[in-house]
Design a binder for these strands. Structure first.
Lengths: 124, 124
DNA sequence: TTTTATCTACGAAATTTTTCGTAATTAAAT
DNA sequence: ATTTAATTACGAAAAATTTCGTAGATAAAA
């Protein structure tokens, strides 16, 4: 499937991935903490996402309940591939290094990454 | 400076970063290998980027020569920050791991990354 | 010199994404 | 029972991005 959600769509997906199936109201409340936008804007976005197959919904109750229909990791992989390509000229290593340089990561996370590195070298 | 080049703009920046100051013609020839678009489209894009301050240009010769005015690393940092935020919910570690999992990296690159990890833990 | 090709500037069309207003419906509150 | 509030559907406006056509200028070729 050709997945490339827009930025707005991604905000919604992030919420649904972490909070599970939710109503437009819930999503909107959350988005409202960050940005200014009317309720119908969020509604419309989610309806479009539903048409596109990004979300599924239950119409049991009057307030429809939406859930992400695309997987978190699949979607992120697609986004990452594109991003590595367009923003880092295809070099994942460059991206990784800049990411580690810019951002804070906990000791545990660093350990995890180190393990991953070891496995990658082993499988070579 | 508030840098968030669009995807098309990024393609052009990538070229200029790697090839140095170039004419619209050169950039266009390159882009044409990838996608369909008329010459004036590329021209217009670069003119807009010039207005925005993303590019500078010399008008010495009839064919203007454009160069990136924003730095590669600065721009990439900005893009990466935003990307970590929107696509990976703020977790750089998650991004790093997925990037390493998805993409091929050479042994040398893996070593570089390992060194970086060591330094990060030392400075903690 | 005349013609042909190339380039810039510019406006505007086309496309994509985001935003909102309105009407109709349903549920809840009074 | 009536009113008030919340919800969906829908169209369309607004904004941002991308694309292109045309006119005018300059250089190169014939």
């Amino acid at each position: 499937m050709n997945l490339k959600p827009t930025d707005s769509e991604l905000e919604i997906l992030n919420y649904l991935w972490s909070e599970g199936p939710s109503t437009v109201r819930q999503v909107h409340e959350y988005l409202a903490t960050t940005k200014e936008a009317g309720y119908t804007t969020t509604l419309k976005l989610m309806q479009i996402m539903h048409e596109k197959g990004l979300l599924e919904r239950s119409e049991e109750s009057r307030s429809h309940v939406y859930a992400a229909k695309v997987s978190e990791t699949e979607t992120r992989r697609g986004l990452l591939d594109r991003f590595v390509e367009t923003a880092f000229g295809g070099s994942a290593a460059r991206l990784v290094m800049q990411a580690l340089g810019n951002h804070q990561a906990s000791a545990e996370e660093l350990d995890e990454i180190r393990n991953l590195l070891n496995n990658l070298e082993k499988d070579r």
